Every structure is written in structure tokens, then in C-alpha cells.
Amino acid sequence: MSITARRKVGIASAIVGVASAGVAAGALAKRYAVGRIRLRPDPEASEPLGELRGRPTTVTTSDGVPLYAEVDGLQDAPLTVVFCHGYTLNLDSWHYQRRDLGEAHRLVLWDQRSHGRSPRIPTEDCSIDRLGDDLAEIVEALVPGPCVLVGHSMGGMTIMALADRHPELFGDKIKGVALISTSPGKLGEISLGLPALLSKAVHKVTPGTVSILRRGGALVDKSRQVGNDVAFLALRHLGFGDSQNVSPTVVDFVESMIRSTPFEVIAEFYPALMSHDKLSALGVLDEVPTSIMVGDKDWLTPVEHSKAMAAALPSARFTEIPESSHLVQLERPALVNNALHELLKRAIADTDAGDENR
């Protein structure tokens, strides 16, 4: 080997060595950061997140999808609360609401199609309108009397699609609605907390990137399984408003739900979320008591989107929850549950008044 060739090999080896050292140092830094976070006192360390279970059941939809659901709580309660979870999550994301509301109310929790324990479905069936039809069939099959619907993120959009496609259910069967960290539409225009030009660039390249990654979904999922430290730190920062004090146990719990959702599912529902537009359907919700909640630091479904819904629903109760982000029902469960208790009281009062007038 010539001196020039040996020199090139030496330089290349040095570059590889420095790069490898940098990767290793970065990995060690992440492990150190995560390790320090986990050593802090964690009041939620003993909370049985994801372990609460109700009576399992299956509702087969009109297009043949067997949706997984659980019936829990006080079975002879006069009111049923139906929980609709968000994008990439599952019914366990309602842990604190199930725990605190079940003593006085009958509960129905379900996994939206392709999420949680519900089976994967074809891409063409990944629409918000179809989710609204699914909810109608869940209500018909599992709710014998009046009910209140509670939706987070994509679950709130599911409720809006139900209002658009089945308005006759509101006021008679459905006595109240809670919309948590959700949006009536125009998600493709949000800033994601970025400067305007950078935000536009991200929105422009994201659909194509998601489509490309979807084709290699299995490989992407493998990389997600080994990237837990990175995912933990990213979710802690982006998913929670008070990232310094949020429970590591709660962050791990959410990260495990997201990681269990195949990337192909994430990619298949992405276009539906971006094209969602149900602002015109909100008038249907004026027929019933409605509560709108959002974290003041939510960058996925910003406060402005909830304010737009509140403007379209003058009688709705609007709650902006401080120091919280998109996962507000897990980050500030006491405040969310207080608002839900207030909504349920209003729904029961309206139900009783309706019964007296008959």
C-alpha cells in the first residue's frame, strides 16, 4: 500500500473513530440523563397504569371489524360514560378517569380500529367518518340508556364525525360531550411550536416522508423498539407541559402505548387527521352540555383550536389547563376529572328534567 493510500485509510479510520465516539458519547449522555430522571422521587411509581380491567367484549361493525371494548364501573348507574381515545393510544390512556369515575358511573372504553386490541384494517377504511360510524355502533351495542361521550385528540374528532353523520343521537341518547385536546380541523396549518417558515417546510415534507416510511413499516418498528431513551426524552419534552416534574412512570406508560401502535397504522391515519374538518358539525353539540378542555402548552392541537370550538358553542364550558400539553388527561388528571364531574352533573340534571317533562 502506498503512503498516500495508507494516509487516506488513516484519515478515514480517524473519522469513523470520531463519529463512533460521538455516537457512543451521545448514547451515554442520553442514558445518563434518563437515569438521573428516573432516580428522582416519583409519586406515580406504584400507580397500576394499564392494569385496570373491565368486562371485555367485542362489537362487530357494519363493515366487519371486531372492535375491542370494556364495560366497567357501576353497572346500575343511570348514566354511561363512553371514552374515545386518541391517535396512537388505546383505551388504557383513560386510566385516571376510569379509576376516579367508575364508582358512580357505568363506563364503556373501546379501542378504535387498528389501535390497541382492535384489529388492523385496510388503509381505505382509515377515515374519521368511519370512526364516527364505529362510535355510533359502540353506543348502540353497549349503552342501554343515556350517555356522555368523552374524546381525547382523535377521539374528539370521532365524536365530531358522529355529530356530523348521526345528529339525531344528540339530545335523546347522548346527554353530554367532553372534547379534550382536540381540533375541529386545519391541523395541517399548526405551527408545531416552530417558526413560520420552518413549520411550512415540515408540513410540506411530512406527508411524503410518512408515506416512504410506511412502506418500510416493519423496519421502522424495529428501530422504535431500540430507541427507548430517545423516545422517552422526546415524549417527556413534547407531550407534557411541565416536563421537569412529570412522572417518569407516566412517560414510560404513554411511550409504551405509542410504541405498540405499528408505524403503518400511524401513517395510514395521518392523512385523515390532516384532512379532518368538522367545524360545521359542532352546532349539533349545542343540543347537550359540552365541556372543552385543553392544555395551555398543547402544540399538537393548540389552544386556538379549542377556542374556535368554544366560539362555535356559546353554551360550552371552556377550561384551559395550566402547565400541561397534549396528554392533559394523564398529566393533570385531577383537573380534568373535576371538569368531567361537573359535566356529568349537568348531564344528569338535564336527563332528570327531560324525564319530568314527559
Rank of each mutant, 00 (worst) to 15 (best):
S247T: 09
E44C: 11
S324Y: 07
A347M: 04
T158A: 11
H105K: 12
L198H: 07
A310T: 14
V108W: 01
R31K: 13
P146V: 02
R36I: 14
S199M: 05
L52R: 12
V226H: 02
V226K: 12
K204F: 07
I37Q: 10
I292P: 11
D125H: 15
T182A: 08
E103P: 06
W110Q: 08
G10E: 03
T57W: 03
L149W: 12
A281V: 02
N90P: 11
E140T: 15
M257W: 15
K30H: 05
D277Y: 05
G64R: 06
P43T: 05
M274V: 13
V23C: 11
S223M: 14
M257F: 14
K307R: 14
E287H: 05
G145L: 02
V210M: 00
V303W: 05
R165N: 08
L101E: 12
C84M: 08
R236T: 04
D164T: 05
L101R: 10
I138G: 14
P146Q: 02
G216W: 00
V148G: 02
P56V: 12
G151F: 10
R117N: 09
H326A: 01
L330K: 00
T60C: 07
Y270W: 03
S275T: 11
L279Y: 03
V59N: 09
C126W: 08
V143S: 01
